[in-house]
Design a protein around this nucleic acid. Sequence first.
DNA 1: CTGAAAGCGCTTACAG
DNA 2: CTGAAAGCGCTTACAG
Lengths: 342, 342
Amino acid sequence: MVTIKDVAKLAGVAISTASNALNGKYGVKESTKKKVLEAAERLNYVPNPIAQGLVNNSTKTISLIVSGPSSYKFITNPAFFEMMKAITEVVNKRGYQVLLNLLTEEEEVQGIPRIAHSRLSDALILIGSRRGDEELTEILTKVPIPSLVVIREPPHDSIASVSWDNLRCGYMATKYLIEMGHRTIGMIGNIPGLKMTEERVRGYMLALQEAGIAYDEALVVEGDYYQDSGLVGIRKLLNQASKRPTAVFTGNDVMALGAMEGLEQEGIRIPEDISLIGCDNIPNLHLLKTPLTTISNPLSEMGRLAARKILGILEGDDELPQHVIVESELRIRSSVKRLGPM
Amino acid sequence: MVTIKDVAKLAGVAISTASNALNGKYGVKESTKKKVLEAAERLNYVPNPIAQGLVNNSTKTISLIVSGPSSYKFITNPAFFEMMKAITEVVNKRGYQVLLNLLTEEEEVQGIPRIAHSRLSDALILIGSRRGDEELTEILTKVPIPSLVVIREPPHDSIASVSWDNLRCGYMATKYLIEMGHRTIGMIGNIPGLKMTEERVRGYMLALQEAGIAYDEALVVEGDYYQDSGLVGIRKLLNQASKRPTAVFTGNDVMALGAMEGLEQEGIRIPEDISLIGCDNIPNLHLLKTPLTTISNPLSEMGRLAARKILGILEGDDELPQHVIVESELRIRSSVKRLGPM
DNA sequence: CTGAAAGCGCTTACAG
DNA sequence: CTGAAAGCGCTTACAG
C-alpha cells in the first residue's frame, strides 16, 4: 500500500506539500507540484478515501435505500432496477460511490437512521418506501445528511423528491379506458394514508367525474404495488364488486402482471373479457401474452435526475427544483378493448 | 456527532477502556463495562466505521461489480438483479455493506484495479464479466483483495467462483429438444474464447452426438447474452443456415426474449413454426405470449452462496469449496413443440 | 512557497 | 483491570 508519505519522500517534500500539490491547492510552485505528481504517478499512488473521509467528514458515497414489504424477495419491481442503474451511472461518473441497502418495511424505522448515522455515506436516496408521510418526515428530518425520495410524493415540503405526477397517471389511464368505451372501471392499488396512491386514486376519480360516471368505492381495492397484490386484487374485484368491471387500472405494471396471473387462473381473457392498463412501462411488456397498455414513466430519466439532484445538494450547485416532476405518457398496446356504445 | 470520547467521558473512563468495553475485549471489569455500555446507550453512540476502517484496514464493505457491454443501459438482465438482491441481503445481515459498481466492458481493465485499490471495499464480487480467462486472471491476481466471480467459469483455479454447470445447461436444453423430436437445432450464444459459453456449446454438441445428429456449425451463432443479440442471432439463423432449425436453444432467457421479438417481426410463430428454449428462468416467463421453456438456475441461491463464500474468505471461516457449482433443472412451459417422428 | 504540528475517531500494544 | 501514547492516512490552519 503506497501512501502519501511515500510520494512525499520520493518527491523530497513534506507530506503537507504533497497533499497540497495532489489536491491542486494554490500556493505550490509549479516545479514542486510537477515533482509530486510524477512521484505519485511512478508509485501508482491512489489516495485512501477512508483517510480522506475521516478528515473531510465525507465519504463520497451515497446510500441507495430500497424498501420492500416484509421480505427482500418481494423487491421484484424492474422499475427499481432501472432507476438503480441510472443513479449509479450518474453518481459514479461524478466520483461518487453507491452503497446499496435493502430494507423491509419494518426495518425502515431503525434502518434509515442507522444508515444515515453510520457516516458511511453523505446522502440518502429512498426508493419504494410506503411509510406514511408524517412518520417518514419524522425519520428524515432527524437524519444528519441530505435525503431524497423517489417515485412517491414528497412526505414533506422540506424533503427533496423526484417523481412523476401520480394524479395525472391515474387520470390518463382512466380517461383512456373511458375513451375506449368503458364505464365500469376497477382500480387496484390504494394504500390508505399514502399520498402516492391516493393521488392515483384521485386521478382515477377525476376522470370518472369528468365523464359523468358515478364513483363506486367497491371498485377500488387495496394493493401494495407488488406483484402478488395484483392477483389478490383482481380476485377481490371479480368477487365483491356489485358489477364486474369491464376494465381495470392497476397502480403499476407489476400488479398488472399479478392481475394477469389471476385472470389466467380464472380463464378470463384479456382484453376480450376484461381490459387492463398498468403504469410504469417496465421492460418487455410487448412480449406478454397480451401486450400491456400502460402509462410510460421515464424510469432511467428519473434515476438520472435523482442523482443530479442529490449531487447538486451535496456540492452546492443544485439547479433543480426541490420537487422534480417528470412527464408520463400513454403507451398503447393491446390489453384494452374498445367497447361499443352502451 | 457523538464519539467514543463522549461516551468515555460520560462513563468516567479512558477512551481506550471505552473502546475495549464496547468491543467486548477481555480484561474489562464487569461494572465498568456496564457503565460504558449504558453511556453509549444513553448517548445513542454509533461507532464511526470510517475511523474503524482506517485503523483496521478494513471497511466491512464488498464491491459488487456488474459488467455490461458498451453501455450500462444494456445491463438489463433480471438475473443480475435477482443475484444482487440475494448478495446484499446476506451480506447486510452479517454486518457488511454492498458497494454497487457498474462497468462497461472497456472500463473493466482500468476499473477493477481502481475499485480494488481504492480501499473502499474488502472484497470484490464480479457479475457478468465476459473478459477472457487469461486477461481476467491477470487483473484479479494483481488485485490486493479477495475476489469472486459469479455465473461464469472461474478464469483460473485460484479465483473463487459460484456458478452452475454450463455444460450441463447446454446438454439438458438440447437433449430435451431432441427428446421432443427435433433434429435441426440452432443455438444462439457462442462467444469464442469465453469458457462459460463454450461449455454451453459443448453441452449442446454432446447431446447432439449422443443422439447421432451431425454437428453443423452454421447452426451455432454468436450472441453476447444481452437481449438484442437474440434478435440478431435468430435472423442470422433464419437466413444463413442451410436448413432452417425447427428449434433453437438460446444461451440465456434474455436472448430468448430478443429471439421472440425477431420471430414476431417475421411472423414466425412459437412453437408452431419454431421451438425455443432458454436458460436462467428469470421472473415472469409464464406470462409471455408463449411461456418459455427454460433451464432453471437458482439465481437467488447463487447470490446467497456467493455472499457466504466471500464472507467466509474474509472472516476465515470458509467452508465452501473454491468453485461452488449449483444445480440446474429443466422447466417445461410451452415454447417447445413435440415433433412427430421424421 | 514550504513544512511541522494538530487533528479526524478509532484501536492496539504496553506500562503501571 | 485501566489509562496514556502511538498510529492508521490524510488535510488544514499556521508559522516561518
